[in-house]
Design a protein around this nucleic acid. Structure first.
Length: 584
RNA sequence: GGGCGUGUAGCACAGCUGGAUAAUGCACCGGCCUCCUAAGCCGGAGAUCGCGGGUUCGAAUCCUGCCGCGCCCGCCA
């Protein structure tokens, strides 16, 4: 609890220096207590034992006796060698209600560019890709909540083999060809008949099937190879044909993402860096580097072994025919990004780790910084990995429909008096929020198996649990507003003894911005999801212990705490992409 | 073979810049709606923190060796 630490650190430092030791890192040793029933902050005294020639238990006791009383503290105790500090709930309440949470935000003029998702536009958005989008968008939202200026960017892969395959298929295969080729596959869901991503992916899949056929493949490979080659050389006609092929697919994907509340500020096409000459200039620069190397056929690489890369150290950036590679263009893209922003964050799948390292080292070689990268492990189905090519996927569109249907069922049971339109709205909000939360709730590096039952859980550890607490606060707000014609007393009267539920809520609120700070700096949004669960839980206990409206009378102190919690909940939910409904 | 990541109750998952009784949800057992939304609240039971060594006053956390799982090791994207 930074709020408390600022107050008592000088007291603790003074008490410790009274022992005669001056250069001890008291500031970093004074830490949040893990055992919350023991206090809010703790100072383990074990490291002092040697220097002071006393037992930790004695040190803690001596220190406890020498800490003066302070408005922010209700209790200082020594237990088993720990010096524990308990915050004064009254002090905490007055701090929080007087805007302490506003001022703990970081003041910064940094502009942050977060690139995420950037999925190849070759088919509908599936759950396997969802971790990138949800993680990335949550980072965007949380940085904004913290006060950063953020640009969310999608890098459009508009010139690779995947788009070439799509373009080729749309040009050369008829609907009948496609359906014949895919006769043994599941038919496409009629719900999405009008959605281009769902339609065109069939062409893509059919082409992939043809490419596996020994007899059919050679001429197709040749044609596709020529297309790729032309695109890499900046052939505008081919690039235009590619765009015509993928843009409707991309639009369909973005529609799906929009339903999850995910939006982008900018789309940057890969081909841009080829056609504007950046890639050529980059390759010339790389060629002049000391660690540049040339292969037998004229292909060029730089040797990153001397820069700490292990394993295969040659990093190829130019083919024998002089054309660029994906990674080369990625480096050009990053140089451009550095010209736009002073902090770069990329969200990438773990399969990109090596590539990201190569790109980062190369950027450093060119005198740039490397971007920060958030890696995540793939989402699998219980049956195995998802793949658009093999058709083994759960489409996000289907997941969201199912989530909405399940949520709708719950709402109709719980609120039989609601009208259908209201039920639909709530169900949509609950469904999409639950899906986001289910994915953001676990740390990115951890493997994740998608399970319907988890994604559609609407109970305690879920988004609806948080949403529900928020609606309770909203309900109170509505009632109080309707009761009060004029504002109540202005001088706030904080009672001497506060109910436990209230104290616990204040403590959760007191830690809230500590959590957000850590989450934004370390790129670990799942910890913020956990914080919001604690906050919702804290609000529920407060709600149980404190009757804000008792026999028609509004307890102003309770109400202000409720309003603060409502505001923090709301902003936190927006930060996670959970929709803050006012009733449900 | 090499590199990176991961392994915590029946299931899922937090904690990993070393610190107290390892947190939370699901499932399981029991209690709470004549009072602000019970999608809630309270209580109970459930864990040799993958296995073996080491460092330390103290190890889920750091080091090391095994084992399981995932990803990567293209002049593909």
């Amino acid at each position: 609890m930074q709020l408390l630490k600022e107050q008592i650190l000088p007291l603790v430092e003074q008490a410790v220096s009274a022992f005669g030791a001056t250069d001890l890192p008291v500031a970093s040793m004074l830490q949040p207590a893990r055992e919350l029933d023991q206090g809010d902050l703790t100072l383990p005294c074990f490291p002092f034992a040697k220097a002071f020639k006393m037992s930790p238990v004695e040190i803690a006791e001596t220190l406890a006796a020498s800490i003066p009383e302070h408005a922010s503290l209700s209790e200082v105790t020594a237990i088993n060698g720990y010096l524990n500090f308990r915050v004064s709930p009254r002090w905490l309440a007055s701090q929080l209600l007087n805007g302490a949470m506003e001022t703990t935000h970081e003041v910064s003029d940094r502009s942050v560019l977060i690139e995420h998702t950037s999925a190849n536009p070759n088919g509908p958005f599936h759950v396997g890709r969802a971790r990138n989008a949800i993680l990335g968008d949550t980072l965007v939202r949380l940085h904004r909540l913290w006060g950063h200026d953020v640009t969310a960017e999608y890098y459009v892969d508009d010139m690779g083999k995947q788009v070439a395959v799509l373009a080729w298929a749309l040009e050369h295969l008829s609907q009948t060809d496609v359906e014949t080729l895919l006769h043994d596959r599941e038919a496409s869901n009629p719900t999405w008949e009008g959605k281009a991503d769902h339609q065109r992916v069939r062409w893509y899949q059919a082409a992939q099937k043809l490419r596996q056929d020994e007899n059919e493949a050679p001429p197709i490979e040749k044609a596709i190879g020529e297309l790729v080659h032309a695109s890499e050389n900046g052939d505008e006609g081919v690039l235009q044909a590619f765009e015509d092929a993928y843009q409707p697919v991309l639009d369909g994907m973005l529609e799906t993402l929009g339903r999850l509340g995910i939006q982008f500020d900018r789309f940057t096409k890969e081909s841009r860096f080829v056609t504007n000459g950046d890639v050529t200039a980059l390759m010339d620069e790389l060629g002049a580097l000391e660690i540049n190397g040339v292969a037998d056929n004229g292909a060029q690489f730089i040797d990153l072994g001397a820069r700490g890369l292990k394993g295969k150290t040659e990093f190829f950036y130019r083919r024998g025919d002089g054309s660029s590679l994906y990674a080369t263009r990625d480096i050009a893209y990053h140089r451009w990004k550095w010209s736009m922003s002073n902090e770069l964050i990329n969200v990438l799948g773990e399969d990109h780790k090596l590539q990201a390292k190569q790109v980062g080292l190369t950027l450093e070689e060119l005198g740039h910084q490397r971007p920060e990268v958030v890696f995540y492990s793939f989402i699998k189905l219980p049956e195995g990995k998802m793949s658009t090519r093999q058709g083994n996927v759960v489409f996000m569109d289907d997941l969201l429909e199912e989530a909405k249907a399940q949520a709708g069922k719950v709402v109709s049971e719980l609120r039989p008096d609601y009208e259908q339109e209201t039920i639909d709205q709530i169900a949509e909000a609950v469904g999409t929020s639950a899906v986001r939360f289910n994915i953001i709730n676990v740390s990115p590096e951890k493997g994740f198996s998608f399970r319907w039952e988890d994604a559609l859980s609407f109970e305690s550890g879920s988004a609806p649990f948080i949403m529900y607490s928020h609606t309770r606060a909203c309900s109170i707000h509505r009632r109080v507003s309707s009761l009060e014609s004029s504002e109540g007393s202005d001088a706030l009267d904080i009672p001497d003894v506060l109910p436990q539920g209230l104290v616990d809520l204040l403590r959760v609120l007191g830690r809230h911005n500590d959590c957000l700070r850590k989450v934004v700096h370390d790129h670990r949004p799942h910890l913020f999801a956990e914080q919001l669960l604690h906050l919702a839980n804290g609000y529920n206990a407060f709600y149980r212990d404190c009757y804000i409206i008792d026999e028609g009378e509004v307890n102003q102190f309770f109400y202000q705490v409720s309003e603060l919690a409502r505001d923090v909940l709301r902003n936190g939910m927006i930060g996670l992409g959970i929709i803050p409904l006012e009733s449900m």
